[in-house]
Amino acid sequence: MAGFFDRMLGRNSSNKGSSTTAKDRLKFVLLHERVKIAPEKMREMKAEIVAVIAKYVPGIDPDTVDIAIEQSDRYENKLVAEIPFSKTRAEAAAESDSHDDLSVSDDALVEADSASEMDADLKFHTDETIPNPTIQNSVDVLDEAETDEVDD
């Protein structure tokens, strides 16, 4: 009976068909061709950007980072990056402690991760108004710079 109504309303009751795939594939390939950045180059760039940000901002999970080309029309393109803070430094530290503790099962770890991610999103917004974590981060960066010099 659903098929009957679909037919009467001109709906296609079967799967979407290959034209949707064609459209998605074309949009993707043309987007990259228009800005002359191959998808593979985008992946490399994303990895580098993530690496740089991770150097300054603790708790960035590369899998949650989304960097993409956004096109409103043919001549207006922008790179849009969404980089969620998945954990605060304190949580990351606490977690690396718990990693050492082998009694925690894999399943439990996954759950803990997703839970702390939700917390971190909220915390990120509130933390911004508190100067302390910023100071903490810049001290870390200085430390790293010093070690680099020693290495050289």
């Binding site: 296609n12 290959s18 034209s19 949707t20 064609a22 459209k23 043309l30 029309d73 043919r74």
Partner: peptide, 18 residues
């Protein structure tokens, strides 16, 4: 074929090429 969803429609092509 467009009706069956197996061919890009005119709207699709216009949308893709702007």
């Amino acid at each position: 074929m467009v009706k069956k969803g197996e061919m890009l429609s005119a709207d699709d092509v216009v949308d893709i090429l702007a």
